[in-house]
Nucleic acid binder design. Structure first.
Lengths: 343, 343
DNA sequence: TTGTAAGCGTTATCAG
DNA sequence: CTGATAACGCTTACAA
């Protein structure tokens, strides 16, 4: 065997040579055009590929024009189980289609997000799933100009005209707030990360406020806390506790991460759930039933959201150019011991 | 402005035309060879790039030869917080270096793993971080032949001769087992997912057994459970409880996921921690302090593991060809209420 | 059923 | 300091 330089890769030409055909023929084989290949040729190519351990070069393939077989996925926080459940669904669909996922974690930082979008564009991704900060609309619009399908996950930006997938916040929040009021809590606080730019938080907060008003509870409390600085959550909690001293109160967390930090704070303050405070919130993470007395949550069909989002991408790639859809999944209220009826 | 077909992308030639220079010159600009460019030219190119909104095409760049600027990351379970914490560290390093991560989730399935490695090879990844099932060694070895750096995370496969990063299971497990024995538990069970092929589980189980023997506790119990079938964990638990009835017993979980499922089982059986059973295990996930009475854990420096693993990749890419390293980080025992001293 | 040749967007080698 | 030109590995007319 001829000696090869270590880095020298085997190409379609090598395969062609070994199989005794032209590279065009090999290319035909690779793209599955078996009907134009004689059995014999097909076999010889198969054998050559085996023997040489050939791997088609996607970069060359992609360069030629149409597809990179790469999908970008930009998430705000990869360590949030909400994100990974979606990622898992998205990835399963990608795999089935022969696509790979490029995953980017922005920490909600518009600058990082911008860098990543730039990178992804450089790699000529065929589609993008994004949990956007909402501050890079020009960049995103550019993708649209390049006819790259974009699906917004969890966070809408109506002006962009992209497909959007997430929870039905109207239904889910409404149900949850009605529930907690029905349990008899007169003082309910909504704890969320900063609302600015994040539609899901805004929607939840808005529905929260509206339902409270409609039901005749003017005393509600909305706290926006930045989880980067631990004191903020603590301060908000103190403030709420002070303002509602002696009354039946509950906290409604805008997502699972907020809820976890919140419960941690309560624990450090030696407050008990539900005696001192009822607690409920979005995201039914695995620990929810295990933290005494069991935390009431709103489950989101995260895996399904990921699957559906990615399917939308492929529909677009397959030529669907219908108007942008907004797909909202129902949330499911899961009642546990943290929100008992007030006696 | 000339009308462009929607999909027509702007290339280095467009930039060259607008800037009034050759594409070679633009290429020089792009690769930062400013010392060979006149200020004037540099400026004109800058402006053209701005104006056209040009993005260099990585596929073309990669095709030309050297680098794809893509790193593959293959994990056994993307929804395991252990994996995502590592991913986060790995990704931060990648971003700093201008690289992107292709993330693949294998569910511990060797066939999926094989598919993914194939895909990643097709995309000509420059490096690979992998949590391998241990059943695709031929494929992995091939990567090594292509001089692509591979770093094994959490799971070793000595015969492959790759760099390896993970926990110091000897130290961490030893410390933990000594601790639980010291607390006075005579009956300790080790619960793990199937050991076969996964070195970290094997090491932990081995140290567990050895230390128990050394300390004069012949009665130890090793349970391998497949978390896919929920009954297995339950059955194992029942068996352990029956065999140790009336004695002071503890369970040591081989990782955070096992521990969570285990605690869930205990809860459904109405067993209390630590009255009926002490519990401890690997992985200090965020819920550990919140599940009463606080779960004793062994924290792994996951973010750091991810960072270090990826740094190793880049060292290799930068030409380091020293023998394979095995980097083991110390675990930290975090004692909480789930493992009180036996009275 | 198969082959030839042009071209995808870069970079690198030469030559000015 | 700048510019032709030839690759890189593949697909796709167009021929045969």
């Amino acid at each position: 065997m001829a000696k090869k330089k270590q880095t020298e890769r085997v190409t379609i030409i090598d395969v062609a040579r070994v199989a005794g055909v032209s590279k065009t023929t090999v290319s035909r084989y690779l793209s599955g055009q078996y009907h134009v290949l004689s059995e014999n040729t097909k076999h010889r190519i198969e054998k050559a590929i085996q023997q040489l351990n050939y791997r088609p070069n996607q970069m060359a393939r992609g360069l030629k024009g149409d597809r990179s077989y790469l999908i970008g996925m930009v998430v705000a926080d990869i360590t949030n189980p909400f994100s990974t459940a979606i990622l898992r669904g998205a990835e399963d669909v990608c795999k089935k289609k022969g696509y790979s996922l490029m995953v980017c974690n922005t920490d909600n930082d518009p600058a990082k997000e911008r860098d990543y979008i730039f990178m992804l564009q450089s790699h000529r991704i065929d589609g993008l799933l994004i949990n956007t900060t909402g501050h890079n609309n020009e960049f995103l619009r550019e993708l649209a100009n390049d006819r790259i399908p974009v699906v917004l996950v969890d966070r809408k930006v109506p002006e962009l005209g992209f497909d959007t997938i997430g929870l039905d916040n109207e239904q889910a929040t409404g149900e949850a707030v009605h529930f907690i009021l029905h349990q008899g809590y007169g003082q309910v606080a909504f704890f969320s990360e900063p609302l600015a730019g994040v539609s899901s938080r805004q929607e939840r907060a808005a529905v929260f406020a509206r339902v409270l008003n409609q039901c005749g509870y003017p005393d509600h409390h909305l706290y926006e806390v930045d989880l980067q600085s631990p004191e903020q959550l603590n301060d908000a909690l103190d403030s709420f506790l002070k303002r509602t001293e002696g009354r039946k109160r509950a906290i409604f967390a805008a997502n699972g991460v907020v809820m976890l930090k919140l419960i941690r704070s309560l624990q450090l303050k030696k407050l008990s759930i539900p005696e001192d405070l009822a607690v409920m919130g979005f995201d039914d993470f695995e620990w929810a039933p295990l933290i005494a007395p069991g935390i009431t949550t709103i489950a989101q069909p995260t895996y399904q959201i990921g699957v559906t989002a990615m399917e939308r991408i492929f529909q677009r790639l397959d030529g669907d150019d219908s108007p942008a859809q907004n797909i909202a999944f129902a949330g499911k209220l899961i009642v546990r011991g943290s929100t008992p009826p007030v006696k």
